[in-house]
Every structure is written in structure tokens, then in C-alpha cells.
């Protein structure tokens, strides 16, 4: 069958593809330019607002940036993040294993779905942060409490996404596997998990975002340690640029981590989403 060459006009397709990558490149540069402009504008507005100043507790952008760099190089960020990321990483790892496992189980078994899914639906919609004071009184102010805070916020969304992912697996692919006499294990490992992986991964990203909220909340509410301590301490001594820099740093760290995770996902798990 020599069809594709004729039918899909590969001679035509080549200049087409070339042109589209050219436009793609231009477009890529354009979005990068827009991003730079957008970020620049934001900082400009911040600087102006700081100079007016709109509040005694509102430092300018430049002051904050200076504080940020100082804290970056004098090691206070390094020490703080070593402390903050510990419960986050442990909590997310536990939530990921437990959540993906439970989610896949709920997706595969009607009984597990009936028993467990409603609990997670409630937990995801409910403000779990309300329970943080409680765990403090049970597990004290140590690592366990902070890890639990992360798990409480991250687990429901990870589990529910795993469940949704397995439920929405393309039924036609499952039929295909059955029609080639795939075994139960082959169906799960070769079809269901790969097909569900994008939504599972999206759940992990949402879980990580929730975990960041949890760990910060724990550090602000339970024990002033890590980055939460930087925020609280600098606030108490009215070092506002340092305080703002700490807040900016945590938003930056979470954003970068999440984008890295997304990039990893596209690169490793989903070749079809890779551009070009």
C-alpha cells in the first residue's frame, strides 16, 4: 500500500511542517517576550506602589529583591528550605503512594469506590485546615505534625484524581487489550495505568500544590520553623523587605517545582504531547 505518500500528500506536508515550526519558533519567542513584559510590568507596579508608599508595611520591589538576594547568599534560605521541604517531601511521598494506590483501587473495584470515594469527596471539598490545631495537640510540634498536615491536604486530591483517571480510561483500548487476549495484569499495567497516567500526574501536581499550602500553614500555625519562621520572625521585627522576600521565595519555589513536574510529565510519560 503506497497510500500515505499519495493520500496525505507528504510532498505538501514537508513545507507545511517547516512553515509551522518557523511560526512556532516565532510564537515561542513572542510568548517569552510577553512573559517578560508581563513580569516586568508587575514589578514596576510593585515598585511604584512601594514608593508612594501605599502602606508602611509595603516595601518597594527593589528593597525586596535586595533582601531576597541577601537571604539567598547568606544561607538563610538554604537552612529554611532544608527544614520546610523535609515534611513536604515525606508527606507527598506517602500521599502519592497511598493516594494513587487507593485511587486506582477505587477505579477498578466498585466496592472500593462505594466505600472510599465519598470520604475523599467530602475531604476534598471540606476545609481540612481546620483540623491542623488538632494534630498539633496530638503529635506535638514536630516533624510528624507537619507531615500529617501535608498528607491531610494532599491525599484527597491525589486519590480522587487516580480514581477519576482509571474510570475515564478509553474503553476502546481496554476492549482492544481484551480482544488480543491480554491478561488482567497486562490490562492494568499496559493499558489502564499508562492511559490514566496524565490525570494521575495532574493529581500529583494538585496534591503538591496543596502540600505546599499545608506545610506553610503548619509552620505558621504549629511551629515557627523553616520558611514559616522566616516570615513570622521578620514580621515580628518589622523587617518587611525580608518578610516579603520569604513569601516571594515560597511562591517561586512552588511554582518552579510544579512547572518542573509538568515538564517531566510531558517529556517522559507523554511523547505525543511533546511539541515538534
Amino acid at each position: 500500500m503506497s497510500a500515505p505518500a499519495h493520500a496525505n500528500g507528504s510532498p505538501r506536508a514537508i513545507p507545511g511542517a517547516g512553515a509551522s515550526s518557523f511560526w512556532g519558533k516565532l510564537l515561542e519567542h513572542r510568548t517569552a517576550l510577553w512573559r517578560a513584559a508581563s513580569i516586568g510590568l508587575f514589578f514596576l507596579v510593585w515598585e511604584i506602589a512601594g514608593r508612594i508608599p501605599i502602606s508602611f508595611a509595603f516595601p518597594t520591589f527593589l528593597e525586596t529583591a535586595r533582601a531576597f538576594l541577601t537571604m539567598l547568599f547568606d544561607g538563610s534560605f538554604v537552612a529554611a528550605y532544608a527544614e520546610t521541604l523535609q515534611p513536604l517531601v515525606i508527606g507527598i511521598a506517602i500521599s502519592a503512594v497511598l493516594g494513587v494506590g487507593l485511587g486506582v483501587l477505587m477505579g477498578l473495584s466498585r466496592f472500593a469506590e462505594w466505600l472510599v470515594a465519598p470520604v475523599f469527596i467530602v475531604l476534598q471539598a471540606a476545609p481540612m485546615a481546620a483540623l491542623i490545631p488538632l494534630i498539633t495537640f496530638v503529635y506535638g510540634i514536630g516533624l510528624v505534625s507537619k507531615t500529617l498536615a501535608v498528607i491531610m491536604l494532599a491525599l484527597p486530591v491525589i486519590a480522587l484524581n487516580g480514581y477519576k483517571a482509571v474510570r475515564h480510561v478509553n474503553p476502546s483500548l481496554v476492549d482492544m487489550c481484551r480482544s488480543f487476549q491480554g491478561t488482567w495484569w497486562q490490562r492494568i499495567l499496559k493499558i489502564i495505568l499508562p492511559d490514566a497516567s496524565p490525570i494521575i500526574f495532574a493529581g500529583l501536581r494538585l496534591g503538591l500544590a496543596a502540600g505546599f499550602i499545608g506545610v506553610i500553614l503548619a509552620e505558621l500555625l504549629i511551629t515557627p520553623t523553616g520558611i514559616g519562621d522566616l516570615i513570622t520572625y521578620h514580621r515580628s521585627v518589622a523587617d518587611y523587605p525580608e518578610m516579603y522576600a520569604a513569601v516571594v521565595s515560597i511562591i517561586l519555589v512552588s511554582t518552579l517545582t510544579l512547572s518542573a513536574l509538568e515538564a517531566f510529565e510531558v517529556r517522559v510519560l507523554r511523547p505525543e504531547k511533546k511539541k515538534g
Binding site: 483500548l173 492511559d195 511523547p271
Partner: peptide, 18 residues
């Protein structure tokens, strides 16, 4: 059930995108 002497071609192709 499905067997090795039959093979199915699907309306929506059922190709694994990955």
C-alpha cells in the same frame, strides 16, 4: 471470549497514544 483466531479492528482505531 476473545481468541487468537480472531482479531478486531476498532472504529476509533484504539491505538495507544503513548
Amino acid at each position: 471470549g476473545p481468541g487468537p483466531e480472531r482479531a478486531f479492528v476498532f472504529q476509533d482505531f484504539a491505538l495507544m497514544p503513548w
